[in-house]
Design a protein around this nucleic acid. Sequence first.
RNA 1: GGGGGCGUAGUUAAGCUGGUUAUAACGCCGGCCUGUCACGCCGGAGGCCGCGAGUUCGAGUCUCGUCGCUCCCGCCA
Length: 595
Amino acid sequence: MAEFLNGLKRTHLCAGIGKDTLDKEVTLMGWVQSRRDHGGVIFIDLRDQTGIAQVVFNPDISPESHVLAHSLKDEYVIAITGKVAKRPADSINEKLPTGFYEVMVDTLKILNECKPLPFPIEDSIDAGEATRLKYRYLDLRRGSMRNRLVMRHRLSAAIRSFLNARGFLELETPFLTRSTPEGARDYLVPSRVNPGKFFALPQSPQLFKQLFMIAGFEKYYQIVKCFRDEDLRADRQPEFTQVDMELSFVEAEDVRALTEHLITDIFKEVLDVSLPSPFPVLQFSEAMRRFGTDKPDLRIPWELSDFTELARNVDFKVFRSAAESGGIVKGLNAKGCATFSRKEIDDLLPEIQPYGARGLAWIKMTDQGAQSPILKFLHEGFVEELFKRMGAQSGDLLLFQADQASVANPALNHLRECLWKRLYPLSAEDFRPVWVINFPLLEYNPEEKRHIAMHHPFTSPLTEDIPLLKTDPGKVRAQSYDIVINGYEIGGGSIRNHAMALQEQIFSLLNIKAEEAKNKFGFLLEALSYGAPPHGGIALGFDRLAMIMSGAASIRDVIAFPKTQKAVCLLTDAPSGVAPSQLQDLYLKLIPPRK
RNA sequence: GGGGGCGUAGUUAAGCUGGUUAUAACGCCGGCCUGUCACGCCGGAGGCCGCGAGUUCGAGUCUCGUCGCUCCCGCCA
């Protein structure tokens, strides 16, 4: 039977059992981690927030509690009072920090019982994720999960302390706000008071933090939830946490320097890891050229080589037609992969087909010379240049993609990552940050037949590129920066348009008509016209940061109550249907989903 | 929206080319045990093989559909 405390006070925590408590009477409270019943004496590992202590029920000391202890099972919640004793010399457990001591129990109080568990409360994971999520409160009892959440707390504490010390104010912004075009799909909240109208949950506090700048709060930050109704991934949840920052009177270098300092500090503080300094900086165009991605994993030294220009003059149709039709021809030297069999090489194509790759050309470098089905189509000069640029040596496997850049680049980067990992497992304790800066301001969207903002529509162009806005908008670079660690985009930001005229010009480039801009962003345009200071900022993906720093494979492992890939919560069964009266209150009517 | 993987006892898994009573470990239940800490020993219970169709004399196994979890593409910064 579950009992109440009735005045009983906990005097110590499990981790505190040691030399200082020897011979003292202590009261501990916690969970039964395990029970070892020897018929006579019974041992319990008692677990609380701090650790584990062994408590002993001996019939010679307290027959009543010994009898009661027979009913204890895993995860019962108990309070025990007893005297701390040194363990006999041959019974010391050096694996436990408290292993030299134990508590000889006088009285036992069973505070609550526990049904047989769906999975054991142990550090190593063996239950499936669905089971763990359904019983998340049990999953979180496991030390490995608990440590990640503790680490997450230390991380946010370190961030707050860093920013507070530099004069930043943590200011809140609304969750119920308005839906704006561009960007991700919004989560909508119907307004009962305003029939037919909806709030949107913020994809980020972007506009509000800019308004803070205009309001004269020159350094803002917030550790805040953001919401995006898009499909999930291992590193993407529909609600996630950002470290959102904005500063006035700064340029891109200032924001980067501050962010770099912040990240270096928290890695030192939380993990005692010293990051390389300064972080390397890549132009977006350089990142794409050398790595085929805007978020390169710099733990992998391999780089791509570009042969597009040369490929115009070769007989090999696959190469030439790609080069002539606006595509690219690029190669990857997978050093040491010449040992791959023909089948192993053939099996690489399915790896990159998801990116749209239609083939994979290869040259195997062996002691007997180069082997490849494509060599006969390539003239000697071209081949020599290939080898030279790729640094080809015996033992290497050269891989090529000839396709549109949007296919060839990601395909080669994927090969770069997956082949390297096969040879050398990547260390989760090796952190390689890199800045990727000056992204294109706009990208062309063929479906909508217009340019859309690559970052967001408030990003400022590079001053030197402003003239191109009129002549060649696709070439305009933005004052933007992404911070990437180990192939994960950890954060991104930009300098914003603080001049109304420039912002209006960009809206019009985005084909957002003056009227629409006024309707949807009028409040921002108006605010910009009331003395907006130059400003910019950045938002860091807090969950991803916690994931990388804790070595977790998924963002879900650092979120207490995450959603599954279908965006449902297995614990609460959300989302759920609602009562017709609730819909009526909101003037909503459901229509059946399309088949 | 699309592609891949997985789904068998409470849990984690095995179950070959379709074949008789579906295995194991841990957990659970009962008994024994006064120095264990992965306690040990003896005994026992526990299954809609995700669900639904189909093929077959016969389906955990093959086919199709469907649901769930997961990884990826699209989407998302």
